[in-house]
Design a protein around this nucleic acid. Structure first.
Lengths: 99, 99
DNA sequence: GCAAAAGTTTCACTAACGGACAACATTCAC
DNA sequence: GTGAATGTTGTCCGTTAGTGAAACTTTTGC
């Protein structure tokens, strides 16, 4: 495990993604493209300061699967994506259609 | 086809969903839940004044499948949802994660 | 440089699901 | 009521999302 002068998760997140409550810190969005979902999850995971293994455990899957999703090797099912976001990232998934 | 005093599609859409450019007319969003995606597509389709069959044809699928999606009998694949939104509804799909 | 942690890739496997097709039901205009 | 248009439902099948474990590579701390 990497050691640094940062001791709390909050410090980590604030340093890398700004203070809590800012859009930059709390919100991640993308126009949908297959190959961007991986990046979305990847970023969200880092913002939460989690390793793939930790995320996997919270969701009830394996780190190898998380890796494949982040690298867009497997397409995620919407229901699985929801599990990852809600259980793993403790966030909320939102869907928007612009006509 | 139902006949009425409305003669153009634009009139239909304006009457039922407001003027172009308004949020009410152009935007549909939902916190992700399985059973809400159907309603989202259903609403978007009506806003566009399309039948299930017309939508299906534009996307390259069948009306029976569209029906099942709208009624939440089948979960849509993300890639298929994208096709429906972009090809069928001529809209744009957006995905957001709230942490 | 070394070791440990984190991430990637491969392989084998299969239950579950997406999506097609055709038949059926409903709604609507007249 | 009747017929045409629209929407729903049952059945079926090929594809694939997801598992699990192991081997491998990259990154990191010291």
């Amino acid at each position: 495990m990497k050691k640094s002068n940062i001791t709390t998760l909050e410090q980590f997140k604030e340093k890398n993604y700004g203070k809590r409550g800012t859009k930059q810190r709390d919100e991640l969005e993308t126009g949908y493209e297959n190959f961007k979902i991986g990046a979305l999850i990847h970023e969200a995971r880092l913002k939460k300061g989690l390793t793939q293994e930790q995320l996997a455990e919270k969701v009830g899957t394996t780190k190898s699967y998380i890796s494949k999703i982040e690298n867009n090797i497997k397409e995620v099912r919407l229901s699985t994506l929801q599990k990852i976001v809600e259980l793993g990232l403790e966030g909320h998934l939102q869907l928007k259609i612009q006509l």
